[in-house]
Design a binder for these strands. Structure first.
Length: 565
RNA sequence: UACCCGAUAGUGUAACGGUAGCACAACAGAUUUUGGUUCUGUUUGUCCAGGUUCGAAUCCUGGUCGGGUAACCA
């Protein structure tokens, strides 16, 4: 296992590592650790997959083992190369490099031979019942199933029919291959599970070579076995499949990996169902798989999240068998922690109100020195133009301030960051609406840079942009996709799309940015001081800049306001 | 009504028979040219009932609650 960005070795322990440690002590796998990440290429990867990727690749790094990327491509109807490509891009972006790239379809011939071997041992048979008949005979959760009329066909007949299935003699749905186990088994997965179905469909890799395709259970364990995987890690819903996984491998006396199940990731205000994410894309509820509101890796990448933050998050949430619900703030904190250290600060006014410094010379422009990142002295500083007419944030002014509001208000002195101490003297209102449309201020010429020689303090520092030098940009403010915390709480039968957050995207068409942002390129990340972390979207052009809000800064003032409301 | 799995602060996780910790959240304070960052402190927890043991979050039994399972999906 090697990586381009060399993710750090995971430090947190978990029950899977305990199991691996035990296997290493007993020598069960000769001290080898070989995992795999096995996505089906039928959609884009999401944050839940990121957890699995970090787990599987992380274990390989931790134990000096290997991790494969394997596409579980046994259902040609749903799969596509678009997804194969995006999955590889996403795994690479997360910082991991697979030791081997495999496809389950690589094993189709071998798996077919395994099927014949099972038939020859009397452990599989061709069933010619309809889907409905099979379903009826399988029984229910509380009722045992019953053998069907084709269950006791001879080995020779089964072999003949199966070979003719492969040869394409039968239409879809006429026959299936089933394991012969126990129709009355308490585990539904053991009630003669289906192994092969007929599908006259073109496969994205094998083309028209096959018209029968193995099902998941029949494919997955054998793929693990062929790759000599040691620990086959999957999510909880496959727990009931483990007896079948073991049975299929044991009956053919093959190399036997250990399947281990862990709880998938659930996040508040998020939804991880691939099927529903596809529905969001198809109904144009979002702009695409990489809409920055989507929980897809492509989406969060476009949103401005970093691979480092994602890995730190996956490390932090841990790995257990408890099906919990992680608060989305944990994710948001992970990206804040990373961006705080690495992002340059800039000033941007999203909701501008004009400020005129009455005693500032009309034509003077001063270049103010502004520190780029207080967390990183090596980031240096830049020059920001200051002039008579500025923009500040509307929210940073109150005509009649609340007692806990200590930003600009009439008569109160505040600091313009890296600029001067200024005092609001009067306001200009729209005569029609009464709305404050302009603030008239004075500045203290002795406070250039923001410090008063007499040592007097101000309670607030606010950001600003020189009107004449401002760069206009579109800013997209993103919020949670769902207004409901736990999407699992949405009642069955109710349209889950009713719970989408109508304010998950707010477009600000004309935000005012400081001059230095004029040349920012797509992918560039920075902090808009006091507002949040932003990045330049792929839609951005030199003529029309577009920024995405990755995440807001923590905001105690907003908390105070919320309490008062 | 069957089988499988799970349960530790509000949330997520550690403790592997020997002092219940950590992170996030919340609250209070300090620092601060970002109401950011950083730092300090506080509140809050072993699902219930029995049993084994000198000693149980941990082992056993029974219950309660939650999740999963009846695609020719994965």
């Amino acid at each position: 296992m090697s990586t381009e960005e060399t993710p750090s070795v995971p430090s947190a322990t978990n029950f899977i590592r305990d199991l691996i440690d035990a296997d290493n002590v007993s020598g069960r796998f000769d001290g080898r650790v070989h995992t795999r990440f096995p996505p089906e290429p039928n959609g884009y990867l999401h944050i839940g997959h990121a957890k699995s990727i970090c787990l599987n690749f992380g274990l390989a790094i931790k134990y000096g083992g290997q991790c494969n990327l394997r596409f579980d491509d046994t259902n040609p109807a749903k799969e596509d190369v678009e997804y194969v490509d995006s999955i590889q891009e996403d795994v690479r972006w997360l910082g991991f490099k697979w030791d081997n790239l495999f496809y389950a379809s690589d094993y189709f011939e071998t798996i077919y031979q395994y099927a014949e071997a099972l038939i020859e041992k009397g452990l599989a048979y061709v069933d010619s019942c309809s889907t409905e008949e099979i379903r009826q005979l399988r029984g229910s959760l509380t009722q045992p199933g019953k053998p069907g009329p084709y269950r006791d066909r001879s080995i020779a007949e089964n072999l003949d029919l199966f070979r003719r299935m492969r040869a394409g003699e039968f239409p879809d749905g006429t026959h299936v291959l089933r394991a012969k186990i126990d129709l009355a088994h308490t585990n539904m997965n053991m009630r003669d599970p289906l192994l092969y179905r007929i599908r006259h469909a073109e496969h994205h890799r094998t083309g028209n070579k096959w018209c029968i395709y193995p099902l998941y259970d029949f494919t997955h364990g054998y793929s693990d076995s062929l790759e000599r995987i040691t620990h086959s890690i999957c999510t909880l819903e496959f727990e009931n499949h483990r007896p079948l996984y073991d049975w299929l491998i044991e009956e053919l006396d093959l190399y036997h990996p250990q399947q281990i199940e862990f709880a998938r990731l659930n996040l508040t205000h998020m939804m991880m169902s691939k099927r529903k994410l596809l529905e969001l894309v198809e109904t144009k509820s979002v702009s695409g798989w990489d809409d920055p509101r989507m929980p897809t890796i492509a989406g969060i990448r476009r949103r401005g999240y970093t691979p480092e933050a994602m890995r730190a998050f996956c490390e932090e949430i841990g790995v257990t068998k408890f099906n919990g619900l992680t608060e989305i703030v944990v994710l948001e904190n992970a990206v804040r922690a990373d961006l705080n250290k690495t992002s340059n600060r800039v000033m941007a006014v999203i909701n501008p109100i004009k400020v005129v410094i009455e005693n500032y010379p009309d034509d003077l422009v001063e270049e103010m020195d502004a520190i780029n990142n207080p967390e990183d002295p090596s980031a240096g500083s830049r020059l920001v133009p200051f002039s008579k007419t500025l923009y500040i944030e509307k929210d940073d002014f109150m005509e009649t301030p609340h007692k806990q509001f200590f930003r600009m208000s009439p008569g109160r002195e505040v600091r313009l960051r890296w600029g001067y101490l200024v005092t609001c003297q009067s306001v200009v209102k729209d005569p029609a609406t009464g709305e404050v449309i302009e603030l008239r201020c004075t500045y203290d010429p002795l406070t250039k840079g923001g410090n008063a020689p007499d040592g007097r303090k101000v309670k607030s520092t606010i950001h600003w942009v020189s009107a004449a030098h401002a760069v206009t940009a579109e800013v997209r403010l993103y919020d949670h996709l769902f207004s409901i915390a736990n999407v699992a709480d949405i009642p069955d039968g109710e349209d889950w799309k009713n719970y989408l957050n109508p304010k998950s995207l707010v477009v600000v068409p004309e935000a005012k940015l400081e001059r230095s942002l004029g040349t920012a390129q797509p992918g560039y990340r920075c902090q808009f001081e006091r507002l949040g972390y932003f990045c330049v979207d792929k839609d951005s052009t030199p003529e029309k800049l577009v920024f995405n809000r990755t995440v807001t800064l923590k905001d105690d003032w907003a908390k105070i306001q919320k309490k008062q409301a």
